[in-house]
Design a protein around this nucleic acid. Sequence first.
DNA 1: CTGACTGCAAACGTTTTGCACGGTA
DNA 2: TACCGTGCAAAACGTTTGCAGTCAG
Lengths: 136, 136
Amino acid sequence: MTDFKTILQHKDLKATHQRLVILEELEKAKHIDIDKLYNLVISSCPTLSKATLYRNLNELVSKDIITEVKVANQKNMYETTKLPHIHLICKKCGSIEDEVIDTTFLLNEVSKHRNFQIEASSISLSGICEKCLTKV
Amino acid sequence: MTDFKTILQHKDLKATHQRLVILEELEKAKHIDIDKLYNLVISSCPTLSKATLYRNLNELVSKDIITEVKVANQKNMYETTKLPHIHLICKKCGSIEDEVIDTTFLLNEVSKHRNFQIEASSISLSGICEKCLTKV
DNA sequence: CTGACTGCAAACGTTTTGCACGGTA
DNA sequence: TACCGTGCAAAACGTTTGCAGTCAG
């Protein structure tokens, strides 16, 4: 299990009970929106207010401990920051899967045509996931 | 200049003055958020209400005449629907450039590892644009 | 002429903020 | 103990909706 207490302290954030619960639920859920996360969090921490959840998600995003994932037709999702990966988003069931993939080829292709200094990439593919394909 | 009147009629939408102005400003601006678009549109169409702008953007997105672009740390942007392309987003000045690029290699790579039926892709690279690089 | 569209204002849901209290380091 | 973080309630914000009037086809 990830040691979020140390991570928080390294980023000059206090390791409060609320923050630890938020991060643990986020880690378990992989990708989740605010409302679903709120419902999970209040079972371990019933007094937590939505204001605190909003404040912490913003804080954690700005310190790059978690990442905001924007998806068409869905609310903003959050995930704990991991190695670079792409998202496979199912149009049927809305699930999001991670896939680690080498994007060097793509980035080189862009660099060949453009004088643009790439620092990060965000790639998502939408379509039908394996589960929904077999359901048809 | 794109013939938006015909495009609208083909999609069973009336070619109102408001819609044509919205589409023309969108075409000129390339990528733009609602508030900036509103300010442009009211100079050609001073009575246009934000409700109408919202309603039309949703309508035009659902008919695939325009496309919603989600970008980290920025409001939703809109562009007229064009051939598939990727976005180069500058972290310094916030500009968005389009780049048409062959993504077959990437998509094949995913198909090799996953049983996921890809229908669309959304790729954006963030970094520093040419203009900002020379400014340093 | 008629249904689709618009403008206005009010409603709505989401996110942020001010303030007093509480908990971490 | 000092100050960052929290909870609550209210405010601010962005977006949607109901309705009566207007306009494109």
